[in-house]
Amino acid sequence: MPLEVGLWRVDGDKPVKLTASGVPLEAQLEAMIEADPGILGTALLLIGRQVPTDFGKFIDLLAVDDEGALHVLELKRDRTPREVVAQLLDYGSWVRTLTHEQLLDIFATYRPGAVFEQDWTTTFGGDVPEELNSGHRLTVVAGDVDPATERIIAYLADFAVPVNVVFFRYFGDGERAYLARTWLIDEARTPPRTGGVSKGGSKETWNEQDWYVSFGEESGIRNWEDARRYGFVSAGGGEWFSRTLRKLPVGGRVFVCIPGRVGYVGVGTVIGEAQPFEQAVVTVDGEQVELASQVLEAGYTHQALSSGEDHREYVVPVDWTITRPRSDAVWMRGMFANQNSACKLRNRFTLEQLAQAFDLGD
Rank of each mutant, 00 (worst) to 15 (best):
W8H: 14
V23I: 13
A27P: 00
L29R: 08
A35E: 15
A35L: 12
P37G: 05
L46T: 11
G56F: 09
F58N: 11
F58I: 01
A63D: 08
D66L: 01
G68E: 10
G68S: 09
R79Q: 15
R79D: 13
R79I: 00
R82L: 10
D90Q: 12
V95A: 01
T97S: 11
L98G: 01
T99R: 03
T109E: 15
G125A: 01
G126K: 05
P129T: 06
E131Y: 12
L132T: 02
H136C: 09
V140F: 00
G143P: 02
D144V: 00
I152R: 07
I152T: 11
A154I: 08
D158S: 13
E175K: 14
A177K: 11
Y178K: 02
T182E: 13
R189E: 14
T190H: 13
T194W: 08
G196Q: 04
G196D: 03
S198P: 03
K199V: 11
G200N: 02
W206Q: 07
Q209S: 12
V213A: 05
E217M: 12
G220Y: 08
W224S: 04
E225L: 10
D226Q: 01
A235N: 06
G236Q: 10
G238R: 05
E239T: 13
G251H: 05
R253W: 09
V254D: 11
I258W: 05
G266M: 04
G268H: 11
G272Y: 04
E273I: 06
F277A: 08
E287D: 13
L296G: 05
E297H: 15
E297A: 15
S306K: 12
G308N: 03
E309K: 04
E309M: 09
Y314Q: 10
V316A: 06
D319V: 01
S327I: 07
V330P: 05
V330H: 09
V330M: 05
M332P: 00
G334M: 03
K344L: 15
L351S: 06
Q356V: 13
